[in-house]
Structures are given as C-alpha cells and as structure tokens.
Nucleic acid binder design. Structure first.
Length: 524
RNA sequence: GGCCCCAUCGUCUAGUCAGGCCUAGGACAUCGGAUUUUCGAUCCGGUAACGGGGGUUCGAAUCCCCCUGGGGUCACCA
C-alpha cells in the first residue's frame, strides 16, 4: 500500500454535449495533482451506454480542455499505452473481469425482475429497514442456472457483497471513513445486454490504467465502498482516494446543476451572467446555440473570459495556498497545489470573485493579445470585415489601448460599437442626449468648440486637451460643461473612455460630422 | 427515511491535526471618503463571522459529548 507509484490521475467525463463548470474544477484538480508531481493526466471517456453521435457529445468537452490549456497525456485523439480510452471500446476487459468474479463466486447471475426488486424495495421501506436484495438467484442449482441462461432469461450480474465486512478507507481530504457492508445490496455490475455499469467499469479501468489517485467530487463518496470491495475482489492495488467538495450554486450549498437553471436565473449574481449572455450572444450571432449558460465552460469562452481568469477562480474553489494569496498563474498553482490543502465543505461558485480574477488577468494582458481576443467578437458582430487589414487592426488596437482597464471581457469591446458604425447610425442614449445636449447653452458650446477643432491644425490627444482647456478658460466654464455634451454628440453615450482619446481615435472628420448630425437632431 | 459528509464575516477562505502568537487574518462583494471630464481604475477607511449547549483545561475557533442546521447519496445513470 505504501509502495510509491508514479502519479497518474484521470478525469472520466461521460459525453453529455457540454462541459460542466463543476466537472471542470474536478478535472483541474486532477490535472494539477498530476502536473505537480510530474505525473500523468488521463482523459477517459465514460460512454458505457452506446452513444448516438459521440463526436457531437464529446466535442465541447475536449474544446473546454483545450481552451483552458489543460492538456492530457493519454486519451482521445492521442491514445496511449492503455488504449482504448473509450469505455465503449473496452468491453473485453469488463467481460474478462466479470468472468473471473463469477468463477470465484464473487459475482452471480441474478434473475430477479425489476418488478420483484421494486416490490422488495417498497416492502423494506414500509418496514423501515434498509433494503437488501434477496439473493434468491444464488440458490439456483448450477443446472437450473445454466438452463435459464441458455434459455435467454433476462438477468444481470451482481457483485456478491461480503456482508460481514466493514470497508475502511483513509480519504485524503475526508479522513477516515467506514461503511458497514451488512447494509449494502449487491450492486449490479453488468446489464443483461453485456454492458458494464459505471461503478464496475470505473474500477476495471482505474486498475488497468494504473491510476494512483482517484480525485473526484464528494457526491461519489457513496460509490466508494462498492468500488473498494470490487478492487479487493479483483486483487487490485487500491488507488488513493480524494473526495473533493462539489461546486455549489452561488451563495448556496446545493450542488450546481444544469437542471436548476431556471432557479438560477433568479439568483442576483447569476442573473447578471444570464443578462450578459442575452446581450452579447445575439450580437455575435449565437442566438441559436440554445442554452449557453454559466454552468457550461463554453459560456465563459464564448463571452470572452480569459482561461487564466477562469482557472484562477476554479482553483480557489475549495483550495487555498495560505491566508493571503489569491492571484496565481497556472504555473504558480501547479507549483503549490497539494491535496492536503483542499477544503472539506462545498464551495459556491462566486461570479463576483470570478470577475475580479478575470479583471486582474485582463489588465496584465498585452495589447496585442487583447486585440487577438477582441477581433473575433468584432468580426462576428460585423463591425469589421472577416479578414481585417492592418489598418483596421491598428485602429482596433488603439481603441483597446485607450480603453485600458475598462475592457474586462473580450466581449466588452462590443459596447464601444460607436467606433465602428457609420456616423448616421449612432444610437443615442436619449436620457443622456436630453440631459447633456438639450441643456441650456450646451449646443452652442459644442458648436463653437467644433469650430475650434476645425481650425486647429493638429488633432492629437494633448493638443485637443490644451484646446479645450483654453476654450473653457476664456469662457470661464468648467471642463464638464463642454465635455459631457461633446461626448454625447460624438458617441451618443454618456460614458466611455477619456474624451480626448475618444476624439483622437475618431479623427477630425468623423467628430465634426457627428457633431453636425447631433446638432441637427436637436431640431427634431 | 437509511447510510454518509459538512459547519469561521453576505461569499471564497486562513487558523482546527501538534489548544495560548486569534480583542479571529486575507480576498471578493458592500458602505464611506480621496482622486478623476463621465465610466472604469487606483488609494485610504468602515461594517461584518467561530450555529447552540455541555464538558476537559490555568486557557478552546481549535480536544470530547449532545443538539441543531445544511448537503450528498440511495438505479439494469454517470
């Protein structure tokens, strides 16, 4: 038991068509532990049920790993020494194990019907005693049994639980846990059609793939005694178990679940994320994707989060380094990650905190990388051509540069649509328009300053700054008296980046034209 | 309901194993204030927690017992 084994961890998703953010956190912890120990991280696909279109169901999962940069050393697309990595292709292994167990009388054919089982279960419940299956099939003579098998009587294979035992386990995060086997029904390990059940296939695969650490969410804790028993029956070396807390819904202790989406829409923190999606996705033509929600990793990618932001937040969900370190790069997390610092209680996903990690990492990002992240959004929104030329890219990177820390998600660039639309297509914020441009004297000031801008030979940030300062000084005004109406006139909006930067980016022609248009609009 | 797990600010957590350094630290959020042409950012400051009850001890967030609360799981799902 204490023989040191090379660290091999695995994440075994079933192909569901999307990657759950909580599952991603589990995968991350497995990946981190493997990387921390120079070990191996394995991706195994738990498709025990025949899968209709595996590619469609698996695609988003692999996509999530690739996006976050969590590379796998063995698994789909690359294979490895323990291939295949799809359970659907590993049947011979399961059958061999089942046969061995049956030969050794550790498993048996069970002919109980679903109805019988249901009745027994109901009876147990009524009598308030724990349900244990009858094991009556065990009393069949070998002859009878073979006859029934030959006849094709429906049956399953059950594992014979040694009911006189107690399963004892030292879980890395939970500590010592025990289960009384006398309370455990014999689990079905193989269906009548020969397909294995999760608990069984998982044990076979973990052993065959030499998994050293089974790191999974706490909800699997109750599966563990059966798996331990199975490992023992098969003579396997037991992996080390680490049951990490599951990821809960924001401000809750309930497991984050896709089924409760409607309920989440009402949660104030989650609500912001849904609203954000409603705003952004239609603009980039993702309306028909249907249900790209914050429980899915893809949501974060599509809305313009940084892998590093998401990773940092995920790592801090149930794990901490010390009493103060919050911001960590993936490399730092790998270096510092240990299982003994995993917390026991469930951790609610905190969108606010995620956003603060995101904001931090976005600030660190060089402009050219921000540009690369923003371009796809602008292209999808048709603000720029699909193949932007260098001039366009230069223009966008200047905007990004001037936006500075205002850009928190890549999709934030879409809020600055006024940089990309024609002068007469600007959408005015009516409230701001009334407040700023219809204010007494405002229009005249804007008109006069426009004239100054037209006269002035240079049109750069500093000169515009000087120009306006001189202008307000002469007139004995406050800067804001001109700045606010001017901003509304050229962008239609009340808020945004620094005004001089804004004017400079737009350029003289567009500024003057937009001012003309908005002044004309005043008449209407 | 059975079995199992968990319990420190609103949230994520440090501290619990080796009791005193804890009049409980940090971060996010929140509330003030400063700065600023708006927004954002930044800087300063504030509010805010050991679920309850019993022990043990000179001393308990930390150890023991009970209670309470929350959660997970009970499939021929994974």
């Amino acid at each position: 038991m204490n023989t040191p084994r090379p660290v091999r961890t695995r994440f075994a998703p079933s192909p569901t068509g999307y990657m759950h953010i909580g599952g991603m956190r589990t995968a991350l912890f497995n990946w981190l532990w493997a990387r921390h120990n120079n070990g191996t991280f394995i991706l195994r696909i738990d498709d025990t049920d025949e899968q209709r279109n595996l590619d469609a169901a698996l695609g988003p999962i692999l996509r999530a790993f690739k996006w976050l940069g969590l590379t796998w050393d063995e698994g789909p697309e690359i294979d490895g020494p323990y291939a295949p990595y799809f359970q659907s292709q590993r049947k011979p292994l399961y059958h061999a194990a089942v046969e061995k167990l049956i030969d050794e009388k550790k498993a048996y054919h069970c002919f109980d019907t679903q109805e019988e089982l249901a009745a027994e279960r109901a009876a147990a419940e009524k009598e308030k005693r724990p349900f244990l299956n009858s094991r009556r099939s065990l009393e069949l003579s070998e002859l009878d049994r073979n006859k029934r098998i030959a006849r094709g009587d429906p049956h399953v294979i059950r594992f014979l639980v040694p009911r006189d035992q107690v399963v004892k386990l030292d879980d890395v995060v939970r500590g010592h846990v025990e289960w009384d086997c006398s309370l455990m029904p014999d689990p079905v390990i193989m269906r009548g059609n020969g397909s294995p059940l999760y608990n069984f296939a998982s044990v076979i695969d973990d052993a065959q793939m030499q998994i050293s650490h089974v790191i999974r969410a706490e909800e699997h804790l109750s599966n563990t005694p059966v798996q331990v028993l199975l490992h023992q029956a098969l003579g396997n070396e037991l992996p080390i178990f680490a049951h990490i807390p599951y990821v809960a819904a924001p401000a809750s202790k309930e497991k984050l679940s896709k089924r409760k989406l409607e309920q989440y829409r009402k949660n104030p923190q989650f609500k912001k994320m849904f609203e954000r999606a409603d705003e952004v996705f239609p603009k980039i033509g993702l309306t028909n994707v249907g249900g790209l929600d914050p429980v899915m990793v893809e949501y974060y990618e599509r809305i313009g989060y940084l892998p590093q932001g998401v990773l940092n937040a995920l790592a801090r969900l149930g794990w901490s380094l010390d009493d103060k370190t919050e911001i960590m790069s993936l490399d730092e997390i790998v270096k510092n990650f240990t299982l003994d610092r995993v917390v026991k209680s469930p951790a609610g996903l905190d969108p606010d905190k995620l956003n603060s990690f995101q904001a931090h990492w976005m600030m660190q990002l060089p402009v050219d990388e921000k540009l690369a992240g923003c371009l796809p959004f602008l292209i999808a929104a048709k603000y720029i051509p699909a193949e932007p030329d260098d001039e366009t890219k230069f223009y966008v990177s200047n905007i990004i540069g001037q936006l500075g820390e205002r850009l928190k998600l890549f999709s934030d660039i879409l809020e600055y649509d006024d940089f990309f639309v024609d002068d007469d297509k600007i959408i005015y914020d009516e409230k701001a328009f009334d407040k700023r441009l219809r204010a007494p004297g405002a229009a005249d000031l804007v008109r006069e300053f426009a004239a100054e801008m037209e006269k002035n030979q240079s049109f750069n940030i500093n000169d515009l700054d000087d120009l306006l300062h001189k202008f307000v000084e002469e007139k004995q005004l406050k800067l804001g008296d001109v700045i606010h109406p001017l901003r509304v006139a050229v962008t239609g909006k009340a808020v945004g980046m620094g005004l001089f930067q804004l004017l400079w980016l737009l350029g003289r022609e567009r500024c003057l034209n937009r001012i003309r248009l908005s002044l004309a609009r005043l008449e209407k």
